[in-house]
């Protein structure tokens, strides 16, 4: 942890993350991850790939996919651009950590504070998401990842375990509205 006198607040505006159980569905607010975007610079595919191998030791996921290894989870966001997630406790300044590895082969942007994340766990995950977004979540396999819209809010959906466990990332400013949407939909089905 960095040494300073400022205290973080969760996206929902509390000191501790929220956890809500509706029927057999659990919706958990997560604020224990750091987040950065990383984009390959033009003509730097070789040093970029080498740095990615050093940093993550995994094959960069393609469109619609995520990949995990050790502390890192990556998912594809745009052509030649990925989001990288790591534990907040050890990687709070994730952008600096990655910049040291990638140097001028990548454009790296800190995103930690910009996103909220809610994890959906349980049998009702798919039927809840069915009421919220056009993505065919029932057919998402482990590690599938995509961007979509939930109640006008742009989100990333990452499937951690098919049919059972999904992470929804949305803009932090709309955390309250996104959480409300998830809880309302869950009440319809769970």
């Amino acid at each position: 942890m960095l040494k300073h006198s400022l205290k973080p607040l969760t996206p929902l505006g509390s000191d501790e993350p929220d956890s809500t159980v509706i029927g057999n569905l659990k919706i958990t607010e997560r604020d224990d991850f750091s987040f950065a975007s990383i984009a390959q610079r033009d003509g730097k595919s070789r040093p970029f790939a080498a740095a990615a191998k050093r940093a993550f030791n995994l094959k960069l996921p393609g469109p619609g996919q995520s990949a995990s290894n050790g502390d890192y989870t990556l998912f594809w966001s745009s052509p030649e651009q990925w989001f990288v997630e790591a534990p907040m406790a050890t990687h709070e300044d994730i952008a600096s950590i990655l910049k040291a590895e990638f140097e001028e082969s990548a454009s790296i942007t800190e995103q930690s504070g910009g996103w909220c994340r809610f994890d959906l766990e349980g049998d009702a995950s798919v039927s809840t998401l069915e009421r919220l977004c056009a993505v065919d979540t029932a057919m998402m396999t482990d590690q599938a990842a995509t961007r979509s819209v939930i109640e006008h809010i742009g989100v990333f959906i990452v499937c951690r375990s098919a049919g059972q466990y999904f992470s929804i990332y949305g803009p932090r400013s709309s955390a309250g509205s996104l959480h409300h949407a998830l809880v309302s939909a869950a009440k319809s089905v769970a």
């Binding site: 975007s37 984009a39 610079r41 033009d42 003509g43 651009q81 454009s107 942007t109 800190e110 995103q111 930690s112 504070g113 910009g114 996103w115 803009p171 932090r172 400013s173």
Partner: peptide
């Protein structure tokens, strides 16, 4: 299309 530029929104990342 050949400019080496990468864009991403950081509106929400910084207070």
């Amino acid at each position: 299309p050949d400019l080496d530029v990468q864009l991403i929104s950081t509106t929400e990342a910084w207070a």
